[in-house]
């Protein structure tokens, strides 16, 4: 589904991703962990198509297409979804109008007929329940006045509505209390299926207690330095990232 090969990218003259490789197959959940500044959020931004970043080398295939060649909107229309670390407040754009427009444009791109208004409202209601998002979306602007937890739940809610085949969760757990974390994780778990993959970016092992990954990767200095099964997350939690750095240091010294 997603194949990242030797990806090098940065902002201005600073190279942040330094030869990143990752293979994600349909239905898999990959966790990417790593210390601050290792390039996790840059990876998410580059995959979603944020224009501030320049890709200097490497290739990304997404469902057989060259992802890097697509505009951000076409990436979304192809089935990529990024749950933002800091969801943006957009005063004056109602949540409902926003989603309606998104669905309409995605369906048009895929050659599907427009969704009936009643089907749309039913879908919204159903998915809202999934993430226990109780705010009235119709009259409220996107994320405006939402609490930190509501914003993150809104991200998962949007994901549920748009039904992507690959979702990247960029530190969705940051700023969440334990109840909100559980709700968000439940939402994600309900959306797990054999056709849908997840890349979960996080600092902490805590989230992975709820969203159990198939693989855990440790990112450091712009690339993956260690991969393993879900138990790797526990080891990281116990030993800290210094352990990895030290091991790497040893490798370099040796």
């Amino acid at each position: 589904m997603l194949s990242i090969k030797n990806l090098k990218a940065g902002i201005a003259d600073k190279e942040i991703l330094k030869g990143f490789n990752l293979e994600v197959k349909a239905g898999e959940v990959h966790a990417i962990m790593g210390p601050n500044g290792s390039g996790k959020s840059t990876l998410a931004s580059v995959l979603a198509g944020r224009e501030d970043y320049a890709v200097t080398e490497g290739a990304v295939q997404f469902n057989g297409k060259d992802l890097l060649d697509l505009s951000p909107e076409d990436r979304a229309r192809e089935g990529l979804f990024l749950a933002f670390q800091y969801p943006v407040e957009i005063p004056g754009v109602s949540n409902i109008n926003f989603l309606k427009t998104a669905i309409a444009e995605i369906r048009k791109y895929r050659g599907l007929p427009p969704m009936e208004a009643k089907d749309f409202l039913k879908l919204v209601k159903e998915k809202q329940a999934l993430v226990e998002l109780q705010v009235t979306l119709a009259n409220r602007s996107v994320n405006e006045g939402f609490s930190g937890g509501e914003k993150k739940r809104n991200e998962i809610f949007q994901m549920a509505v748009l039904e992507p085949c690959l979702a990247i969760l960029d530190e969705t757990d940051s700023g969440l209390d334990i109840d909100a974390l559980r709700i968000v994780a439940n939402g994600v778990n309900k959306l797990r299926s054999e056709n849908r993959s997840f890349v979960v970016i996080t600092h902490y092992q805590r989230l992975l207690e709820y969203i159990v990954p198939d693989f855990v990767h440790v990112m450091y200095d712009g690339k993956i330095v260690k991969s393993g099964p879900k138990e790797l997350a526990l080891e990281l939690e116990a030993k800290g990232y210094d352990w990895i750095k030290k091991e790497l240091g040893d490798v370099i010294e040796a």
């Binding site: 505009s71 909107e73 943006v88 957009i90 004056g92 754009v93 926003f98 998104a102 791109y109 748009l162």
Partner: peptide
């Protein structure tokens, strides 16, 4: 607002519609 524009685009909304949505929002009050 480039951040807002990117957010809308990342949900599949095309550049032109996204701009129109933001401009429309600007006129709301």
């Amino acid at each position: 607002d480039e951040e807002a524009l990117f957010y809308l685009k990342s949900r599949g909304i095309g550049s032109e519609s996204a701009k129109a949505l933001l401009m429309l929002a600007f006129t709301q009050d």
